[in-house]
Structures are given as C-alpha cells and as structure tokens.
Simulated assay, not measured.
Amino acid sequence: MGQRTRNTAGAPPSDGHVDPATESFVVHRNLLFTVAYEMLGSATDAEDVLQETWLRWAGVDLRTVRDERAYLIRVTTRQALSRLRTLRRRRESYVGSWLPEPLLTVPDVAEDVELADSVSMAMLLVLETLAPVERAVFVLREVFDLGYDEIALAVDKSPVAVRQVAHRARAHVTARRPRRVVPPAEARGALKAFQRAVETGDLQRLLDMIAPDVVLLTDGGGIAQAAPAPVVGADRVAHVLGRINTAVVLHPTQVNGYPALILRVGGEVDTVLAVHIDDGLITGLYAVRNPEKLSRIDREAIVTR
C-alpha cells in the first residue's frame, strides 16, 4: 500500500496565517472532494472542481453565509454539474469501456457501509447511467442527506421538482444497484481466495468463484491494451484471467471502499482490478489499465460524508 497522504489539491496555499475562509474550506475539503468525485467518477476532475470552488469561496463575504457547509456543497455541486456535462460529451467518444478513476481508500471507509457502497465501482457505473441533474440530486439526497430546499438551490430547480427528480433517480438506481452490500470481512476473504487462484492459474478454482454471467470490463482508454468490449461469461472471463503473466505481482489493497488488487510489472502499476461480489460469487470485475487514471493510485484519498 502506498504512503498515506491527505488530499490537498484545491486547498489554498499556506503562508503561516490561516484566515476564516481558508480554515472553513480546509475543514470541509474532504467532504467536497467526495461530493465532486461521486458526481464525476474522476479524482482528477474532482480536484479541478475543488480548485474552482475555492476561487469562488475566497471572494465571498462570510458574513452573508449562514451555513458554510451547505454553501460550499452548493458551489461544488454547480461546478461539478458544469464539468459533468462536458465529460459526458467526451465519454461518448471514449475508446472501449469507460471505468471510474480508482481511489486508494483508507480502511475506515469500508466500515461505513453506505459510504463504501456509494463510491464503489459498481455504484459509480450505475450513477453514470443517470442524467447529470439526476445524479447530483441522488448523490446529495441519498448519500449526503441534504434537504430538498438545499438541493434545489444547488441544481437551480424548485423543491417540488427536486422531489420528483429524487424519486425518479432513486427508482432508477434501485433497479440497477448491487443486490446486497457485502460485509468487509467477506469481501476480503473472497479477494484472498481469488488472488490465490489467479496466481496459481487454477482455472477450476476461478470457475468455482465467478458467477456464470460474470462481466469483466477493461479500461485502457485507447492507451493500454484492453478488451474492446465487455467480456461476459465464466468460461471467457476465467480464460482471460488465466492468461495473466507470471511476471505480474498482485498486491491486495482497498480501492473505492472495497478490497481490490493492484497488478504491478517491474514494480510499476499496470492494472487496478476491483471486484464485485453477490451471494458469494464474483459477478463483476473492473480492470483499470488507462495510465492516465493510475497516476494517483499510490496515494490514499480521504472520502467522507
């Protein structure tokens, strides 16, 4: 596991004197990062949103702000919505499968089951199927428990309209989200067994661990080699996993709140492999190989609610 560092991108520079605006921003920074990341699925873009939020916050007269947390979330949401609409257009031309940028998360995240579920690869892919405003409303309401009036100010809609959007988004996500949240201990045990099977090339053990309709998504971004389309079915997925080079070293870690594997070649990160488990079987495998999404994987990100 990489060295633990705090998320500092987007925070104002320190000259030894901390003014009230800076102090408040730093206090809420990890929360704002989590909001932006859940809306965008990209740590890089989330950090850019935080920088934009800080620039706007620095010019605010704090005497006019009644609730600094709500105000900062509102600004972050607006900036993230603007960026999300741009990202949506870019992702339409993305080469191959698109996956969220993986986050190396601290062990404490797994203990907050709802938070871990909200930043998991599986959930972020579900959120990707929502329209931008639906995604913002769902994240703010279901994850951060903001009131409809506060959300209305963030997305520039009436509270009544926000309630309707929230209901629609909740139904959409419920129909697509994972059936059951797996306890951390169960997930760690399954990952350990999966790692042994991959390292030994034991195809039968792999077949025993993966669901018949398992799906493997590989994100190379047109830069690294990757399957051009999802690989579906136990036999096909086991065959792909069985071809992992013996020179690859597998390191267990925690990514997006759940156990995952970092694959290294010659000491360099080659792939981050996250798994999704349902009813004791692996139903989803998410392999991020795009090097542009792996530059931060050795730095822990602090996500919070």
Rank of each mutant, 00 (worst) to 15 (best):
R29K: 12
L241N: 09
G147C: 04
H276E: 08
W57S: 04
E199D: 14
T271C: 08
E114V: 07
T253N: 02
R29E: 08
M123A: 13
V143C: 14
V26I: 13
L263M: 10
V255A: 05
F194Y: 15
A238K: 00
A226H: 06
P212V: 05
D270L: 12
A46Q: 02
V155R: 05
L281K: 11
R89E: 15
V49M: 02
R90A: 09
R74P: 03
N7T: 01
I262P: 04
Q254A: 02
Q204F: 08
A224E: 06
V137I: 07
E111R: 11
A274N: 00
D45S: 02
P184W: 10
V60W: 08
S118W: 05
P184N: 04
L81N: 13
P159G: 14
P132R: 07
L104Y: 01
A171C: 11
A152G: 13
G10M: 00
V232E: 02
G41M: 02
E92F: 14
P228C: 09
H167L: 15
G201E: 12
T253M: 04
F144P: 12
S24V: 01
V35H: 06
Y37A: 02
N256K: 07
P230N: 07
P252K: 02
A193H: 08
Y71C: 12
D208F: 05
T76K: 07
N245K: 08
V35C: 03
F25E: 06
T218L: 05
V155C: 09
A80R: 08
V248G: 02
D156Y: 11
L203K: 06
E111M: 12
A21T: 07
R196L: 04
G10V: 01
R63Q: 07
Y148K: 13
D208K: 08
Y37W: 12
T271E: 13
R168Q: 15
G284T: 00
A287C: 01
R299Y: 04
A260V: 03
Q79S: 10
D19T: 12
P184G: 10
L62S: 05
R179N: 06
L203P: 00
P132C: 09
R63A: 10
S42K: 04
A229P: 00
S42L: 02
H167P: 00
I297T: 02
V49H: 03
Q225V: 08
T86P: 00
A190K: 13
L31M: 08
N30I: 01
G222H: 11
A229Q: 15
V143E: 11
I151L: 13
T200A: 15
A234E: 09
E300H: 07
M1I: 08
Q3D: 13
D279E: 14
W57F: 03
D45A: 11
T283K: 03
D279S: 06
N7C: 01
N290K: 03
L32T: 01
A226Y: 06
A197M: 06
L40Y: 01
L124P: 10
A21H: 02
V143W: 07
H172N: 02
E52V: 02
L285T: 01
A234I: 04
L103M: 08
A238M: 01
A21E: 03
G221K: 07
A227R: 13
I151T: 12
I282D: 01
E114W: 11
L31R: 13
H28I: 00
L99Y: 01
G59D: 14
V272G: 00
D213V: 12
G220A: 10
L146H: 05
L84R: 15
D15K: 14
